[in-house]
Design a protein around this nucleic acid. Structure first.
Lengths: 253, 253
DNA sequence: TAGTGGTCTAGACCACTCC
DNA sequence: GAGTGGTCTAGACCACTAG
């Protein structure tokens, strides 16, 4: 027939919409600007609100938009690079690290953590809570598990819990020789507690960084840190500068 | 009044459902097993299919489930750890690296890449496509940008494009001294091409790893690799062993 | 109190896989 | 062709923010 190739695999509407909106964001909006509300946008593009929302979700996932209930949808600033692994390995809590200890308890950790630490499943470990902010915004929440054997000289008299205790545990950690550290990054979703600290809704995507600190050939500490996936770019080996990743040219539709 | 605390902040249904399903996966299903279909599950839990799907989406994001159109929903195996950054820095294509070159072209890169490379926006660079598989499954697709100046001795006569050309570019790269490399990890969504290679739908979540290879104080190559976020755990400093991250105990509801 | 995004419903049809 | 997950609709109501 005379018709030219007709879009063999039709793009879903929400995907097309994502592309259109993405281009509009590049050319017609500036950071911080408020978009029209969802009902308005849906009407303007002639789609159901649910479909529009699917497109917005994608863009939020990619860090292009920020949505806040009761407020509106705004254009997000570029992701901030947060340094996660540096060349020289340091204990958590070393001078100059970016974390703020907020609490410390002594309790049996989740089974998976106990296994990774090589402690018994009912053995109590110090659990330090810390959080991290950048440009005044919360970017990460951490649980740091430190077996009692890693901080043998920790005074039992000092504050039994709370921030002071957390600092004491971190202080004691510095006295040991750090052999090496290993990290892993994976995608997760924020649980209620993390979500609260990160100022997001539960279920929002986070990058989970698990770090094993090795000393004396044993796992001396284990950190599980969750970073907001929408606003963060995790840098290893200090790559603060690299700033790629806006879509390469996509086919028209 | 006499009523006990009534769930001050009611959990969304889909979130509750996620928790229930997650626990069921732990206790009643084994890897690879097929779940009942969505209509069935929705009916069983007394919710609309869309709500159930929201819960499944979460679990898929967390790497617990795998859904395939026309087939069904299966219990996913644990994420595979893929080594991304090692202690000793090596050029891409060094002996033993996990990537399979598939193509190479010479063209002007996206503007953002040109800027990061410090080349002119219209200057052509070698663009090597590579892919990476683990246990027979595709896990990542990469675009590697190599400015002509980084491979000065590259013979113009050899295959002008295709896998042979890609290997030639990588081979030439090895001759230079690698100073250091810097990586960044962020969340993205798969474009059509990547989605195809990764055997996923467009828009599915990916971990984008941007690596800058520095030689002679200049960016000698730039790699943009997209990993399937559902099946991969990226390891730095070789942390193959760490395997945490199943939800900590969550509050009942 | 008005306006926003977040949740949820009950349907419909489509694209894909496998028999 | 039967059965699966993927897309889409047109509504409703809720939770939150801010004037």
């Amino acid at each position: 027939m005379g018709t030219t190739q007709v879009e063999a695999v039709p793009e879903p509407k929400y995907w097309h919409l994502r592309t259109v909106l993405s281009e509009a964001l590049d050319s017609e909006f500036s950071v911080g600007e408020i978009l029209p509300n969802e009902r308005e946008l849906a009407a303007r593009f002639g789609v159901a609100r649910a479909t529009l929302r699917q497109a917005l979700e994608q863009l939020e996932l990619e860090g292009r938009l920020q949505r806040r209930r009761g407020v509106g949808t705004t254009v997000a600033p570029p992701r901030v690079g947060v340094s996660v692994g540096t060349e020289q390995h340091l204990w958590p809590g070393a001078p100059g690290d970016a974390w703020q200890p907020s609490d410390c308890t002594l309790a049996a950790p989740p089974a998976a953590v106990a296994d990774a630490l090589g402690t018994g499943r009912d053995e109590a470990v110090h659990t330090v809570r810390r959080s991290r902010r950048t440009h005044g915004r919360p970017v990460a929440a951490e649980l740091l598990y430190v077996p009692a054997s890693s901080v043998p000289d920790l005074s039992a008299i000092e504050a039994p819990s709370g921030p002071a205790r957390a600092r004491a545990v971190l202080r004691e950690l510095q006295r040991r020789q750090l052999q090496r550290q290993e990290s892993a990054v994976e995608l997760g979703s924020a649980h209620a507690e993390d979500a609260k600290v990160l100022d997001r809704l539960p279920g929002s995507p986070v990058l989970v960084v698990t770090t094993r600190y090795v000393a004396g050939d044993r796992t001396a500490a284990l950190s599980v840190a969750t970073y907001r996936a929408d606003t963060c770019r995790l840098t290893f080996g200090d790559a603060g500068g690299v700033q790629i990743h806006h879509d390469p040219p996509s086919r028209a539709c």
